[in-house]
Every structure is written in C-alpha cells, then in structure tokens.
Amino acid sequence: MTSANISSLPDRTLAAAALVLGYAVIIGFTDNYVRVIAEEGGLWQFHATRSVMAWMILLALLVPMGLRLRPRNLRAVVARSAIHGSGMLIYFGALAFLPVALVAAGLFTAPIFVLLISGFAFGHHIGPVRIAAVAVGFVGVVMVLGPQALGGASLAAILPVAAGALYALGNVATREWCAEETAETLLGGFFLALGVLGAIGMAVLSVWPLDVPEGPAGFVMRGPVWPSGTFLFWTFVQAAGSLLGVGMMIRAYQLADAGRVSVFEYVILPASAAWSWLIWGETLTPLAIAGMVLIAVAGMMIALRARSQGN
C-alpha cells in the first residue's frame, strides 16, 4: 500500500485511543504474572509455549468467528512480524543484565521513533502538538520509573533503545504496510515469530546449557524444563490475554496515525502500576503519581487535537 493510499484512509483517533486503553488494562494484568512464570520457567520456553497456545486459540476460533489468517501481502506480514518479534526479544534479553527501570525507559522511547520514522521515512506531517505530547509523556514515564531509570547508563543501555526503535518501526508498519490485513493475521504472524525465536533459544540452551541462578534471576538464561501446572496456567492466561490485548493494539494502529496512537501507549505504565497495587500491594511514590498525571495529559493533548480536527 502506497503513502497516497494510506493518506486516504479515515483516521479514527478516539476509537484507537479506546482500544489502546483496553490493551493496557489487559496487558498490565497479564504481565504482572510474568514474575510467577519466571520462578521456574525460562524466557525462551515461555515464548515458545505461549505461541503454541495462542495459535491453538486462533485455530479454535477460526471457523466460529470467521477469522482470516491468510495474509494479503505475505512479505509485509513477515517483515512486520520479524521486526516486532526481534524488538521484544532484545527487550526481554536486556532484562538479564540491566535494571528493569532502565530497560522500560528505553522501550518507551518508541513514540519518539514513531514520529521520526513517520516523518522522515513516510513523509507524514508532524505537528507541534504531537511533538509536545511525546515529550510530556516521556517525562511522565521517567517520573513513574523513578530516578533509577536514568542511572547506570552504559553501552549496554543502548539495547532497550534499540528495542524501542524496532517496536516503533513495527507499529508504523502496521498501518503503512499492513493496513489491509486483519488483526488476526498480524497476531498470528507476531506469535509465530516469537515462537520460532523461543524454539531457537530452547535448542541453543539445550546444546549449550548455562549455569542458571534460581528463581526469576535465571529467566533469560534458563533452558527447557518440565513445565508445572502453574507455569502452564499462567502462560495460557498470557496467551489468551495477549491475543485479545495485542489484537486491540494492532487494530488501533490500523485505525489511526501511528504518531498519535503511540502516545496513548504510555497508559500501559499506570495500568501496570494499578494492577501491581491491586495484586501485590505495591504502592507508588508521589513522583510516580505525578508522572502518571503527565502521561494522562499527553494522551488528552492528542485526543483533544484529534477531536478538533474531526478525527
């Protein structure tokens, strides 16, 4: 699909914002239980197992819901899936040797890359409101993560930023390359890419096992283990939640300009924090609460601007 075709598509920013909010609530809940999975399982087995479960759900719903999994543009879907899968692989891999706050802060540079890619690669107009919203939202993210998000910067800290860049490129590709694909087609491609990467990681760690620490500390380095009922249950919850949540996110990027939708994704941080408080009793600092207010302001700036333009 050409840039001219893309520009003729209706831009439904408010509908996209509602979908991203639903995505954040669902993913914020399921991601809080990754710590339970990491107690005994490994990252690679988690991705491989979750992908198999996700595909089983997709195939089970294929006929009842009339899903279409066949890509219209196979090359575009494969490219997008590889980009998104690689971004998530780098993100989770960086967790092995960098603080979680630093890794998360790097990933949330994605909206900045979305604007740069949309503007310079695809020639989209970038207005001052969107630039300001990205800046406000990112300041809010850093405040939520805390001062440690800016500490410990090193060459290795480039990895989460690289993950953010790949995540941004995949999100731009959703509308630029795959606007005519169904959400389930892109979901299937995303989980297939992660499943393949997970299987490769399991194979490598089976041949060359590492000395793995116990518990969540060994999540990235752990090879395949015999899964317990707890691992399978929460991995299934992840698979089902990711299908619904990521599907909503994909549809949002198909409905509206990526530069606008990417700012709404900041809401996943306060959503995750809210679930952490409800599930684990973890509380937020006043600085983090102020950061969440800034994140909300960033989203409102985009939404109000879209409404004034009739989108």
Score class of each variant (00 low, 15 high):
Phe97Val: 01
Gly151Tyr: 04
Glu176Ile: 15
Gly215Gln: 08
Glu181Arg: 08
Glu184Asn: 08
Ala156Ile: 03
Leu197Pro: 06
Phe219Trp: 05
Ala133Glu: 01
Leu186Asp: 09
Gly87Val: 04
Pro216Leu: 02
Gly218Lys: 02
Asp211Cys: 04
Val204Ser: 09
Val100Glu: 00
Gly151Pro: 05
Gly188Cys: 09
Val196Asp: 07
Pro216Ser: 13
Gly93Glu: 04
Phe138Val: 14
Ala101Ser: 09
Ala203Arg: 08
Trp177Pro: 14
His124Cys: 06
Phe191Asp: 07
Met202Gln: 14
Arg175Thr: 13
Gly198Glu: 01
Val136Met: 01
Gly151Val: 03
Ser118Ile: 01
Gly119Trp: 12
Ala132Leu: 15
Gly106Ile: 00
Pro99Ser: 12
Gly146Thr: 05
Leu197Arg: 05
Leu187Gly: 07
Gly87Phe: 05
Ser154Leu: 14
Ala193Lys: 08
Ala168Asn: 04
Ala149Val: 00
Met202Cys: 12
Ala153Lys: 14
Gly198Ile: 01
Leu95His: 00
Gly119Phe: 08
Ala149Glu: 02
Gly146Ile: 02
Phe122Tyr: 15
Asn171Phe: 10
Arg130Phe: 00
Ala101Leu: 10
Leu166Tyr: 02
Ala132Lys: 00
Leu89Trp: 08
Val142His: 02
Ala133Phe: 00
Gly189Arg: 13
Glu184Cys: 07
Ala149Trp: 00
Gly198Met: 07
Ile200Asn: 02
Ala121Cys: 15
Ala162Gln: 09
Gly127Trp: 01
Val134Phe: 12
Gly137His: 07
Met88Asp: 04
Glu214Gln: 15
Ala133Arg: 00
Gly188Asp: 09
Leu186Glu: 11
Ile126Asp: 03
Ala104Glu: 11
Met88Tyr: 04
Gly140Pro: 03
Gly201Lys: 14
Val204Ala: 09
Gly87Ala: 10
Met202Glu: 04
Ile158Asn: 04
Ala157Pro: 13
Phe122Trp: 15
Ile90Cys: 04
Gly218Phe: 02
Glu176Asp: 14
Ala105Lys: 00
Val172Cys: 02
Leu159Val: 05
Ala173Asp: 12
Ala199Tyr: 03
Pro147Lys: 06
Leu116Phe: 12
Gly93Pro: 03
Ala193Ile: 11
Val141Pro: 12
Leu155Trp: 10
Val144Cys: 11
Gly201Val: 09
Gly218Trp: 11
Glu180Phe: 10
Pro160Cys: 03
Leu150Tyr: 09
Phe138Ile: 13
Leu192Val: 15
Leu166Thr: 06
Tyr91Gly: 00
Leu210Thr: 10
Ser118Glu: 15
Asn171Lys: 11
Pro99Phe: 12
Ala94Met: 01
Val172Met: 01
Gly198Cys: 06
Ala121Asn: 08
Trp177Cys: 14
Ser154Lys: 02
Gly198Arg: 12
Ile112Asp: 04
Leu145His: 02
Phe122Pro: 13
Val142Thr: 02
Gly93Gln: 07
Glu184Arg: 09
Leu89Arg: 05
Gly151Asp: 13
Ala101Gln: 08
Arg175Leu: 12
Gly218Leu: 04
Phe92Met: 12
Gly189Thr: 08
Pro128Glu: 03
Leu155Val: 11
Ala153Glu: 13
Ala157Asn: 07
Leu145Tyr: 07
Gly201Asn: 02
Leu107Val: 04
Leu197Cys: 06
Phe138Cys: 13
Leu155Phe: 05
Trp208Pro: 04
Gln148Val: 15
Gly152Asp: 10
Leu89Tyr: 11
His124Leu: 15
Ala199Glu: 11
Ala163Ser: 07
Leu145Glu: 05
Trp177Arg: 14
Ala94Leu: 01
Pro209Val: 11
Leu89Gly: 11
Ala193Thr: 08
Gly93Val: 06
